[in-house]
């Protein structure tokens, strides 16, 4: 469904990704594991079209989207829930969700999707008329996920959804992610909470210094010595 072939990318003159290739199949939940600064976020931002790769190609449903601008990538059905929520802080929660459905395909079914998403997030429903900036970190993350789902994407990418949240809230976020994946949505997820994420996913890639060093099923990664040492600290 989504395929990266030999991607090199970075910011300005600084190259962060070196020859990254990966693949996500329809209905899969795939994790990218890696240390801070390994290039996980850069990978997602490159797929989303926010960064132009200097080399390599990206295919989505066999269509070359390497140089497609970010807003068109969304139109094709790829949605990124960015690190740090990135809500529209001065807009209400409802307005934030409606912006999520800006994509052409989602706009016509806006009301229906909203109802569906709110049924998954009862807490968000209670907050609809509040300004997004006034919510707590955990609630904001819920809104960010809900906003991402409003686009009715074919593939949903999460960038560090548990970042900066208290452990209790992290558990709730993971429950929500499980709920999302159980609906059959294809998911690509980057997360520092390696153990929980691998538990919830089918396959995983290990990214180190901008290169994919291991690619395997989640179960295998959980028992892989290198992964255990480097990321689980055992």
């Amino acid at each position: 469904m989504l395929r990266l072939e030999g991607i090199h990318a970075g910011y300005g003159p600084t190259t962060i990704l070196h020859d990254v290739s990966l693949e996500v199949k329809r209905g899969e939940v795939v994790t990218i594991v890696g240390a801070n600064g390994a290039g996980k976020t850069t990978t997602l931002r490159t797929i989303a079209g926010l960064i132009q790769p200097t080399e390599g190609r990206i295919f989505f449903e066999d269509r070359d989207i390497t140089s497609t601008p970010a807003h068109e990538v969304v139109d094709l059905g790829i949605t990124l829930i960015p690190e740090g929520r990135q809500l529209f802080a001065d807009m209400t929660v409802e307005e934030n969700l409606l912006m999520g459905a800006y994509r052409k395909e989602a706009r016509s079914r806006q009301a229906e999707t909203l109802e569906h998403v709110l049924s998954l997030f009862p807490r968000v429903r209670e907050r609809l008329s509040q300004s997004a900036g006034s919510l707590s970190g955990g609630e904001q993350q819920m809104v960010a996920i809900a906003r991402g789902m409003m686009a009715r994407p074919s593939i949903l990418m999460f960038d560090e959804p548990s970042l900066g949240l208290a452990p209790i809230i992290v558990q709730q976020v993971f429950e929500v992610i499980k709920a999302v994946t159980s609906t059959g949505t294809t998911v690509l997820i980057v997360e520092q909470n390696v153990f929980n994420t691998l538990k919830a996913s089918d396959r995983g890639y290990v990214l180190e210094n901008g290169e994919i060093v291991i690619s395997d099923t989640s179960e295998a990664l959980l028992t892989n010595d290198h992964v255990r040492q480097a990321y689980l600290g055992i």
């Binding site: 452990p167 909470n193 929980n196």
Partner: peptide, 9 residues
Amino acid sequence: IEAYLGKDF
């Protein structure tokens, strides 16, 4: 360990 890796772990 919990703060880093989560309760489940």
